[in-house]
Design a binder for these strands. Structure first.
Lengths: 201, 201
DNA sequence: TTACCTATACTTACCGGTAGGTAAGTTGCC
DNA sequence: GGCAACTTACCTACCGGTAAGTATAGGTAA
């Protein structure tokens, strides 16, 4: 979390406090379920202080969204560019996502909320682009695996990428709801193994 | 939809209208994103009429939830009890869920919203029980498949059931967001086939 | 050194509008 | 007349946001 806090561009303590409180509350209750009054009280600052730093309710949400998108995008790219098997890439990407969700749970909750929600949240089109890019990156890994002969030629890469995203998000969601640690590197391996070998083995 | 409307216990037109409007709005904007005024306006009834029929905002939500849980539970049970292979059961359950989500899209959206959301919605503990029962049913099908030798002894039934749920919900979610028809019986077959055979074929 | 100015970081008190809900009344049917 | 199914008008509390003010630190001119 230390590195992550530094990611917030040298912001001062008050701004960070508001930021993280808002992330937690939005994740927990949804955008419309959280009032500025509540954020104010739980941050121990006055409401206009929040407006001083973020301009509006949407402003907080936007900054949370942008920060998280920046943070998340670098890791998957790096893994996709390494010279390892397609299968190993998938394992590592899933492991990385599990690790982030475990270590940065409030922020991870926030992101999962946006990914899954039907609630009207601001700037959701930006987020959709981000998700599409991520799916494309996965799709390319699946295609790579087919080209190299690692995955069978009959495998449908679109379907596989979609399933990968579904399963990753779902297990992160389970972790968030759980009191004990569910997400492990081993679980990511098991999931990818099951996707790789199927149920008939 | 006709059968489904009849499911609403011979309710009159006004109540049904409120009900379906609320389902749509809750699904679209989340529980906290929808006001009683909005439901009233879009139902073309006054706000106290809603209170006359449902008692409170939570009352609408509860009735939507209960109705949907009753409706959904019978189908999966019936399929699980038929004398077909475990794999076929999975295909049929997924197909059934796809079909429901396509034919009863507003209500399906409502259910998906609850399944996925982190937003605080009323009565969510009831719903969690429902989801747990559904997972258990799937788990039993997977175990059945392993006992009968249909699935490999190395397959982890808990993991497989969890993945099945994740993928089903995810594709229903894609359908809801999409303008064209995604969910087909064929897609359900493909998904189960991929889970069955894996990527290495 | 002192007085003043500016900028930043905060505050209290307040605004207009809307949230969920209710009291009292109306309409139409039996 | 009674009752079910509706209505208008209203209630209190809360919403996102703002105006005006305060406190403090740093800089500058006299």
């Amino acid at each position: 979390m230390e590195n992550f806090q530094k990611k917030l561009k040298g912001e001062n303590d008050t701004k960070l406090q508001i930021f993280l409180t808002a992330a937690r509350l939005f994740a927990e209750k949804g955008y419309n379920g959280v009032s500025m009054r509540e954020i104010s009280e739980l941050s121990n600052v006055s409401k206009p202080t929040i407006y001083y730093y973020f301009g509006s309710k949407e402003g907080i949400f936007r900054e949370l969204l942008e920060t998280g998108m920046e943070y998340g995008v670098a890791f998957s790219r790096k893994i996709a560019e390494t010279d390892i098997s397609a299968k190993m890439k998938l394992v590592k990407i899933m492991q990385q996502q599990f690790r982030i969700s475990y270590e940065h749970s409030e922020f991870s909750k926030f992101f999962l909320m946006i990914f899954l929600t039907s609630e009207h949240t601001p700037f959701v089109e930006d987020f959709k682009k981000h998700v599409r890019a991520h799916k494309k990156l996965l799709l390319n890994i699946f295609k790579e695996g087919i080209s190299s002969g690692e995955f069978g030629a009959g495998a449908n890469p679109d379907l596989a990428a979609e399933m990968f995203v579904a399963v990753t998000g779902h297990f992160i969601s389970l972790q968030i709801k759980s009191k004990r640690k569910i997400l492990t590197d081993k679980l990511a391996e098991e999931i990818v193994e099951l996707l790789f070998k199927g149920l008939n083995e």
